[in-house]
């Protein structure tokens, strides 16, 4: 296996949890809801995902448990922000606190246990193609699932009527409501989708990355996912680029050290965040009249009756 191929494989794996979580958050934000609790949903997804896989011996059941846990967490968020019109920023932060606590309680039963990781695919003929075979057909299934998910989300947002309505709800909930669309119901499904993706992203870590659960193992990836959505200016295509760029920076920083290149690692680590700010300023400037952010992002909506 060549070095470049190996690096690409590592980047794909490192980017997948970011891409999964960010895809979910993108849909949530497109519907006008800002859920800052991604980290909390992810870590509960990781704990439940590992628990499910350990008890059942099946990675798929583990992944489903992770998704389910993420959805349950997001339902709390939906109940608060959509049902009770509570501020989304405060609720999202509270959700993260709750998630860290819950995951610790759930995970304490599984300390020191080990499962077998999700297998890497092997398609005879295809996976053995030199150079590209391992990359295109030889990673674990989640890697390809995350890409399929982004394509699906793109198709949904831009090629279906429901996607159009969802975006309308995120841009101007008053008009969408006036046109007779159930803004709150649309937002609830968007939030649940975000929770499912975050739960799966969290579960990816113990199921496909490191076969054990440790409290706090998401180590801030949920916050990075939030940054990625902005970096991508809420566009699915750019999200893929952003996630892989971020993964690449992370992995290449490690390789650079192995080659003996001396760059302050803090500067390398700060680059993605600085880049996100610059991108945000640039895209906001490019479009007169504000940013490409969903116009109603983060605002409370209570239908007038």
């Amino acid at each position: 296996m060549g070095l470049i191929e190996a690096i690409i494989l590592a980047v794909l794996a490192a980017s997948t949890p970011l891409l999964l979580a960010a895809t979910g958050e993108l849909v949530t934000e497109r519907a006008g809801v800002l859920n800052l609790g991604v980290e909390g949903m992810m870590i509960v997804g990781a704990a439940c995902g590992f628990g499910g896989a350990w008890l059942s011996g099946s990675v798929i059941i583990g992944a489903l448990c992770g998704i389910g846990a993420g959805v349950l967490m997001s339902l709390i968020f939906a109940l608060m922000t959509l049902g009770l019109a509570v501020n989304q920023v405060a609720t999202g932060l509270a959700l993260t606190i709750l998630g860290i606590g819950l995951s610790g309680l759930i995970g304490s039963r599984f300390v020191g246990e080990k499962i077998s990781l999700a297998p890497h695919l092997h398609i005879p003929g295809l996976t053995d193609i030199p150079l590209v075979g391992r990359i295109l057909f030889g990673e674990d299934a989640f890697v390809y699932l995350s890409l399929a998910l982004v394509i699906g989300v793109w198709f949904f947002l831009y090629r279906t009527r429901t996607g159009l309505i969802l975006r309308a709800a995120g841009d101007n909930h008053t008009s969408a409501h006036a046109l007779g669309y159930p803004v709150l119901r649309i937002r609830m499904f968007a939030v649940m989708f975000g929770g499912a993706c975050a739960g799966l992203a969290g579960a990816y870590l113990p199921l496909a990355y490191t076969p054990f659960f440790i409290p706090g193992m998401t180590a801030g990836r949920g916050w990075i996912a939030l940054a990625l959505v902005v970096f991508a200016s809420w566009l699915p295509g750019r999200l893929v680029i952003g996630a892989y760029l971020f993964g690449a920076v992370t992995i290449l920083q490690l390789h650079a050290q192995g080659w003996g290149v001396g760059v302050p690692s803090q500067l390398m680590s700060a680059l993605p965040y600085l880049a996100t700010i610059i991108v945000l300023v640039l895209i906001s400037r490019a479009r007169t009249g504000g940013s490409t952010a969903p116009a109603a992002l983060g605002t409370v909506f209570v239908p007038d009756r």
Binding site: L226, A227, L274, I277, L280, S284, R285, G289, S291, L297
Partner: peptide
């Protein structure tokens, strides 16, 4: 400034700057 000058969402820029400060 990013907000009033360029219209960039302050929620997100201020959040990003947390990590930069931490690393500094």
């Amino acid at each position: 400034i990013c907000k009033v000058r360029f219209g960039a969402s302050e929620i997100l820029t201020s959040l990003m700057l947390v990590y930069v400060a931490d690393l500094l």
